[in-house]
Each structure stands twice: as structure tokens, then as C-alpha cells.
Amino acid sequence: MADRFASGVAVALLAILLAIVAAPLAVVIAGSVLDPGLLGLSSETWRAARHATWFDYVLSLYGRHLVRSGCLAAAVVVLSFGLGAPAAYGLSRREDAFARSLGALLDAPLAVPGLAVAIGLLLAYPRARASGATLAAGHLVYALPFFVRAARNALSSGGLPELEEAAAAAGAGGLQRFRRIVLPLARPGLFAGGLMAFTISWGEFNVSFLLATPSTQTFPSALYLTYTSNSFPVAAAATTLFLAAAVPPLMLLQRIASPEAAAFGEAA
């Protein structure tokens, strides 16, 4: 009886959480395709004649930002792999002081606001701003901990020390072991970590808003412009485009076995 009551409360709370998340998303997606008057939301009936839908209009306004954010997120994924895969390998096998401090240093950015890192990057490297280098570095600082954690989770489950011992006895060098043993073992983690890195970079605002110049502005910054200067249907269409790229990686993450993907929740 009491057990049934407890699970009833749990189900009710879950329903409330789902409603809190789903309701605004449903309204925004509906608002981007339906006549906003139906939702009682818009005071504007103007629609540019050249544009068949609000999506076309958003793409003509912010298409460049969309492409730029996509390229930036892809670059962050590649850089996360380049820096994070060797680091995950080293961290999962070494327990010396250097490894421990790097482990702590990797997680430290999660406890430092993006704005603080952005101001620091801007003041430390004022000339690198125009090229977008500091912007990418800021994104990478926040993506790397998740990537490394996911890769380490994958490596911790697979008998890596024994495999390496055997490979070393057979004459395999460090690079060869990394390529033939570590990367295949870590693959699910690398994949999950890449998806997390993409998701983080794609939605990043705290660092980007300050570090971006007009020529390196990302899509979330463009969203800020839409929200402050465009009407509801335009803003809703822009948000729907943002969601269209953000949701597929999250869906893929869901399908991956939980130990690798769990890193997102634990550290997010």
C-alpha cells in the first residue's frame, strides 16, 4: 500500500518534469510552423514575400551563424579527440602526481563560469580573438572534461593492462598499442564523448557571447539577437532549427550503453 503510494508520487513527479520540459518546446515548434495567431502569441502578421516559410527567413538572416556553429562544433569534436584520447589513455593507466593533477585540472573548468574564462582568454590573448582561436579554445575547455570522462569510462571496463602487457611481450610499441588496443577498446566512449563535445559546443553561450566578433558569431548568439529583435514566429523558427541539430546527438547518446553516456549526467 505504502509502496504503491511512493511509486505513485514518483510517477506524478516524472509527469510534472516531462510537462515542464515538453510544454515550452511543443509551443515553440508549433509556433514555427503554425499561424501564431492560433496560439494567441503574435501581434505581427507581416511575412516577407520572398520567403515561403519562417525557416527560409531565418536561414537568410542567420544561415551563416548556423554553418559557423556547425563547423565550430565539428572542430571542437576533432580537437577533443586529438587531446582527449591520449589523455584518457594516460589517465586510465597512470596514478602518479602528474596524472592526478591533470585529472583535477580537466574537471576544474566545470566549476568556473564560462564568462570568467572568456574574460581571461580575451585579456590574455587579445590578438587571437579575430581568428576565432580563443572562441574555439573556450569551447574546448568545457568539452574536453566530458570527452575524457566518457573515454576513461570505456577504457576502465576492458582489461586494458593485461592486453597491453601481452601486446608489449609480442613486441608492440607504445603508438602501436594505442592504435591497436586502446582506440578499439575506447571506441564507444570516444563516440559518446564526441557527441557530448558536439552538444556542448553547439549550445555554448557563456563563452561565445563575449569572445565572438561579428564575423565569428555563433548560432546561440544569433538566437539572442532574434529574441531581442525579431517577432515570435521568427524566434520560434530559429529555436526549432537549433533543436533540429541538438536533438539527434542526444538521441544517439541514449542508444549508447550507459557507462559511457553516464558521464554527461555526472559532470554536466
Binding site: G82, L83, G84, P86, A87, Y89, G90, L91, R93, R94, D96, F98, A99, L102, L105, L106, A108, P109, V112, V117, L121, A137, G138, L140, V141, L144, V148, P161, E164, E165, A167, A168, A169, G174, R177, F178
Partner: peptide
Amino acid sequence: PAGPSAAWLAPAALFLGVAF
């Protein structure tokens, strides 16, 4: 003998030093 040397950690450590 069959484990990674500290050099595997260097790229990430260098990056976090410079960018964080």
C-alpha cells in the same frame, strides 16, 4: 613496462595551461 608514458598526458596538460 607496457603502460603509457607521461608524454600521453602532455597535449591536454599544455592546452589547459594555455587556455585555462
